[in-house]
Design a protein around this nucleic acid. Structure first.
Length: 274
DNA sequence: AGTAGGACCTGGTGGC
DNA sequence: TGCCACCAGGTCCTAC
């Protein structure tokens, strides 16, 4: 579900509510959510500790304990993280609860059970391959036109697939990739290597703008995304193509089209995107 | 090296 | 109302 702007919004809202609070224990109701440790090990590592820092890399959340151990969470499609009073009624699909001082708890709720949680007790991100191999983030200093050019040149794969490849650009998902390509006027199925330098420049600018605006609007609630406070995002009002099949393009009025690329729906304007 | 397809899961929607 | 096929914002693995 959440892409970079949503995960960043969750990070910002959550850090106010979980940092520097004593962890009293954990409860794992879906065992497979823990990918590299048992419930017992997880409980032992967290109990009587506190989180001191909450970072984000791509779509991963990284929570640092005062022991220097780290908890890494990826929400995948439907994961949600919310802080609630301990006696708040249990929702369906709760995978994990972390009990904190102050009679509150952090809940991981995940309808499709794809979300993953790791406990890292050694330096580095080795055990989490996707995290260890992430590319540049759109708003990171190193994400330059030159960098993007290196990522696309010589590739025959569709530019959309390249944008979704987290090793090349960290944090884009289906929504923000489509919105970036629309704003750059590039058809998602174009071979990446066929983009001119002008198009790469436009795409670079579009990605940064779309991600920046996405964060400013606290993410996109297309289905059920909410931040750590339970609030919906606002960027869905600003979507130009995603989910708008058949509706008029805001630039030219042509009905928005949809194609399957790499198994994913891609929305685009047949006239504005070449 | 690339890419297509299946796997991981559940629920909502639309067709009949 | 019931049943069924299909769809979903992500990533990983295997097979070609």
């Amino acid at each position: 579900m959440p892409e970079l702007p949503e995960v960043e919004t969750i990070r910002r809202t959550l850090q106010e509510r979980i940092l520097h609070r004593r962890i009293q224990g954990v409860r794992v109701s879906y065992q497979k959510v823990l990918r590299n440790c048992t419930e017992l090990e997880f409980n032992q590592a967290l109990r009587d500790r506190e989180f001191v820092q909450l970072d984000r890399r791509g779509k991963y959340l990284i929570a640092y304990l005062d022991s220097h151990n780290r908890v890494v969470i990826h929400l995948r499609m439907t994961g949600r993280l919310v802080v609630l009073p301990r006696d708040y009624p249990m929702e369906k699909h709760v995978s994990l609860q972390i009990y904190m001082s102050g009679e509150e708890e952090l809940r991981l709720i995940d309808q499709r059970k794809f979300a993953t949680v790791y406990l890292l007790q050694e330096p580095g991100f080795g055990p989490i391959k996707g995290l260890a191999t992430l590319g540049m983030e759109p708003l990171e200093e190193g994400f330059t036109c030159i960098y993007l050019t290196e990522q696309v040149q010589g590739r025959t794969a569709a530019i959309k697939s390249v944008l979704l490849d987290q090793r090349r650009v960290a944090g884009l998902g289906n929504i923000y990739a489509d919105e970036s390509l629309y704003r750059a006027g590039i058809f998602p199925g174009r071979p990446a290597g066929s983009l001119s330098s002008t198009e790469i420049n436009r795409l670079h600018q579009s990605i940064q703008r779309v991600i920046g605006e996405g964060i400013a609007h606290r993410g996109t609630t297309f289905r059920d995304y909410v931040d750590g406070d339970g609030r919906k995002g606002g960027f869905q009002e600003l979507l130009r193509v995603y989910g708008r099949e058949g509706e008029p393009c805001r630039m030219c009025g042509e009905p928005i089209g949809r194609v399957k690329l790499a198994g994913r729906s891609s929305f685009y304007c047949p006239l504005c995107q070449r």
